[in-house]
């Protein structure tokens, strides 16, 4: 059972990928330039516009330079672009032209700082609110108003107050990551089975010991769920933050390739964003697996 059931989905995945690449390839092939039915004048205009070029043997073909920005590039063009980018992954060509490995590094570190600080603050505040029903009810209206605000909506204000795009990008991630964790932590701590706290009270555990032997592990599965939601929204926020702030990173890569009208580069950047997401997500899941338990 083991071999078959683990191999099948893999082959099916490869099969679907093959179909997708094939359809993509076929759909993006442009037919060779056909000069029949065109007057000499029309051909001259096309050549003048740079749409076509004359080869050494006198035939007209599509201008290969213009081909790159015409329509959607095919998989081969993207693969070629990816190959070039990956070969230069560790090369710094200029202030704003860093290799893809650096861009991934910038995004991951920017994301990590914002997410970790937000999670720390959210868990701490969430525990306090979860243990104090009165405080929770008092602050809940504010949380409800702040929670649905898009983290990007904060950006102009943040940029104005901190006056530094680096920190603004991190703060945008922070704003995206704080609310789901805060709300679920408060809920998780509040709905912790009261017997656990009673046992802790009978055993006369100190406040700190109660926190890390009973409250935190008890609420951990709920907290992890909150972190997971925060993680997703922070990952969504980091890309546009980089685009808008012009901070080097994978989001920035996507935008700069668009500015260069290099659509293959844009597609490559999208794939890199996806890959970075998978890397961060699998790391997160490993961590989450350590703290969850079954009732």
């Amino acid at each position: 059972m083991g071999i078959k059931s683990t191999q099948h989905p893999f082959f099916i995945s490869v099969f679907f990928l093959g179909i997708f690449l094939f359809v993509w390839h076929v759909a993006t092939i442009s037919p060779p330039f056909d000069p029949t039915g065109k007057t000499e004048e029309e051909l001259l205009v096309l050549e003048f516009n740079g749409d076509i070029v004359q080869t050494d043997d006198g035939r007209y073909v599509w201008n290969p330079e213009k081909e790159k920005v015409k329509g959607v590039p095919g998989p081969m063009t993207v693969a070629e672009k990816a190959w070039i980018e990956l070969n230069e992954a560790f090369v710094i060509k200029g202030t704003n032209d860093h290799g893809i490995a650096f861009l991934v590094g910038y995004t991951v570190s920017r994301f990590s700082v914002g997410f970790l600080v937000a999670s720390g603050v959210a868990i701490l505040v969430g525990i306090i609110l979860g243990l104090n029903q009165m405080l929770f009810r008092a602050l809940n209206p504010f949380i409800q108003i702040l929670k649905p605000i898009s983290p990007l909506a904060w950006m102009p204000l943040l940029l104005y107050t901190v006056k530094d795009p680096k920190w603004t990008a991190i703060l945008v991630v922070f704003m995206a990551a704080i609310w789901p964790t805060l709300a679920t932590t408060a809920f998780g701590v509040n709905s912790l089975r009261k017997e656990y706290l009673q046992v802790a009270a009978i055993l006369q555990l100190s406040w700190f010991k109660r926190l890390y032997t009973v409250i935190l592990p008890g609420a951990a599965p709920t907290i992890v769920n909150g972190l997971r939601i925060s993680f997703g929204s922070a990952l969504v926020a980091v890309v546009p933050a980089e685009m808008l702030l012009g901070e080097l990173g994978v989001g920035y890569l996507s935008w700069i390739e668009w500015n260069n009208l290099d659509i293959a580069g844009v597609i490559f950047a999208i794939l890199v964003v996806g890959t970075v997401g998978v890397l961060l997500d699998s790391g997160f899941n490993k961590l989450a697996g350590l703290v969850t338990y079954r009732e």
Binding site: R193, E195, Y196, Q198, V199, I202, T213, V214, P217, G218, A220, Y293, R294, E295
Partner: peptide
């Protein structure tokens, strides 16, 4: 106390 619901820490 010995609890009806056992109150063992599941983690």
């Amino acid at each position: 106390v010995v609890f009806q619901s056992f109150a063992l820490m599941p983690w």
